[in-house]
Design a binder for these strands. Structure first.
Lengths: 351, 351
DNA sequence: CAAGCTTGCTCAATCGATGAAGCAATGTTG
DNA sequence: CAACATTGCTTCATCGATTGAGCAAGCTTG
């Protein structure tokens, strides 16, 4: 173990300059690759390079960034790491940032508006050039903080009014999913009965849009949707579980189908279902707005909406590189993925 | 949209000093809370505070950290965000770091040793006080880079020889899981037949240890394990799928049970299984070294090993705060979680 | 009322890297 | 060989925040 000593004093360009018998600015130009323009001899450059390696020199970014104008830092806040959707957003974001010579800083804010703001402020302090607020609970507060500090920002997944936003076409995706579920329900039970909507926050834009699609799909088939069928109980698994339990103490008949608003809510729905099934067999039609490959493989009867992460992240970098587009909100289409992987054009789903 | 202008010049303490008709050092001490010790009047402090808010002042961390000795930055690299294990490690790490007044920087390196090193170097440049290498492909190279730069480091999930390591007790967990699977296989098929091991890299410590447990569990029941039953084909889902396809072209009899080395490999196994089932029903006994709540809820026949993330991350912070422990490698016990949530002491599993 | 203390600030050096400006030594040209 | 160009460096100011040292004005005390 070589860790005991605590943090040793780090080697600086001055140390190297002394060792090489030269000046700090020569060392600096060699180590940042600008030595040819600065007419440093190859000989000296090689000596410095060798010394740097020997001494384990590492650039002090703090000092370097302080001096330079552009930070090359790009920040992202993300609500959770507990699902594949945000996971793939972060992986792709980091990848694309790095391939553009940017250093990505990502932090997870647990859907906590206070933490979101704190994290945004921290990133601004670290001089990020851009801040991408993913699924932010209060995107506009974040935008305000960014604007006040002269940092450009961008909303992903959940829209705001003060920065360009890139989101899924939640309305269409939800309507399509609802149609499919109603269709599946009819095949299974021989009747069109209203679904239950579980999960999400009534206050967030995506949930509101998905609810609109959910409502419209019922409406177009002439199905009356009771108000108590909408359980926007938040995103946590336990909340979905509890909300369903409470609903069922009031209602006698268990629902024949459910629209679940995220994979994490699906977790709650499934654990509630498991308890229900202890009494009697019970197989409601299930759909989830969000996609998880393991769910797709394990239960081909669960319909899922897959959001187009590559297009969304690409759109974000387009704005970063080429400026905002005409629309304040870019809507990216989603794809309905049956558990079995079959994909039908939605217009035929109920035909 | 207020983003068009590009990044405005950021407000500094000098700007505020000018506006307040005072000195930069007064402003600095007010904004970092040390103004009482520096005998600044409450009146001036309030004026500065108000101005800072008005002007949207944000501390320049680069400058601040350059001047101070401690950076309060703590770095973590993590292989992937595509599973709940690493996801929960990162969430908990960020949480615990923040509650200790540290700023967490996390980056995902896709199991790519080059990217791991590059990311480590970047974090060192950003002056992290500690670097936690999670599931690193080449932990010792990272430790070397850290040591050369005087940065303390720590291995999580996969051990190294140059820094303290915190890992799961892979051997015991794997042996227990294998026992359970063999037991389940006997119940199902009335005979003890060897399992297939799928996923992971033969070169990594965890896979090696799990294989050892896998072997020993077979051995203690006197089951001969053919060499071709071990498919350490890497972690990606497609690789597991392909490896199984290839194995099956050689072998006539499909395996009756499989030990899958990660949830991402499970994805590949399940997609292979789906194709197999097109021909005839086929229900091998399945177990996975790693835990996913949706898998647990969707298929109660899949046995899973849950690693103890809270204890692991806690152990990491113990070392950071109180120095390394006597053991170079801390092994944290795992828990065998039946799909149905039932937990049996493993010694009775086969009794 | 002089000596000393307290209050409320300011000054200036510093952290490490950067790059414009400058300078000495050599090489080239008319 | 003087005038000029080129090569290969060094010097120094700078980025923004921090902090030890210092200083002037007011207050207290013997």
């Amino acid at each position: 173990m070589a860790n005991d000593g605590g943090p040793a004093k780090r080697t600086t360009i001055y140390d190297l300059a002394q060792l090489a018998g030269t000046s700090a600015s020569a060392v600096s130009s060699v180590l940042n690759g600008k030595w040819k323009q600065r007419r440093i001899s190859t000989q000296l450059a090689e000596r410095i390079e060798r010394l740097a390696k020997e001494q384990g020199y590492a650039l002090n970014m703090q000092a370097s960034l302080l001096r330079r104008e552009e930070s090359h830092l790009i920040g992202m806040i993300v609500p959770k790491y507990d699902n594949r959707y945000f996971g793939s957003i972060v992986e792709l974001f980091e990848d694309m940032a790095r391939s553009r010579g940017l250093f990505p800083i990502v932090t997870c804010t647990r859907r906590d508006p206070e933490l979101e703001l704190e994290a945004a402020r921290a990133m601004i302090s670290h001089q990020v050039g851009w801040l991408i607020a993913t699924g932010a609970t209060n995107p506009d507060r974040i935008s305000e903080v960014c604007m006040a500090a002269g940092v450009r920002s961008l909303n992903l997944d959940l829209p705001g009014s003060l920065a360009p936003s890139i989101i899924s076409d939640n309305y269409s995706g939800a309507r399509e999913l609802t149609r499919r579920l109603l269709h599946n329900g009819r095949l299974k039970y021989g009747a069109l009965t209203p679904l239950i909507f579980v999960g999400g926050r009534a206050s967030d834009h995506n949930t509101a849009e998905r609810l609109r699609g959910f409502h419209d799909a019922h409406l177009e088939l002439g199905i009356v949707l009771p108000a108590e069928n909408v359980l926007t109980c938040g995103y946590a698994a336990e909340k979905a579980d509890r909300a369903l339990s409470e609903l069922m103490t009031d209602t006698a008949t268990p629902p024949r189908g459910m629209f679940v608003n995220s994979t994490i809510s699906l977790e709650g729905v499934l654990s509630w279902l498991r308890r229900c099934r202890l009494d009697r067999p019970y197989e409601p039609v299930l759909g989830c707005f969000d996609w998880d490959p393991l769910v797709a493989l394990l239960d081909e009867n669960i319909e899922m909406v897959r959001q187009d992460v590559p297009r969304m992240v690409q759109a974000a970098f387009n704005i970063i590189e080429h400026g905002p587009s005409a629309e304040a909100i870019i809507q990216v289409p989603t794809k309905l993925v049956g558990g079995a992987g079959k994909a039908e054009p939605h217009d035929q789903a109920l035909s």
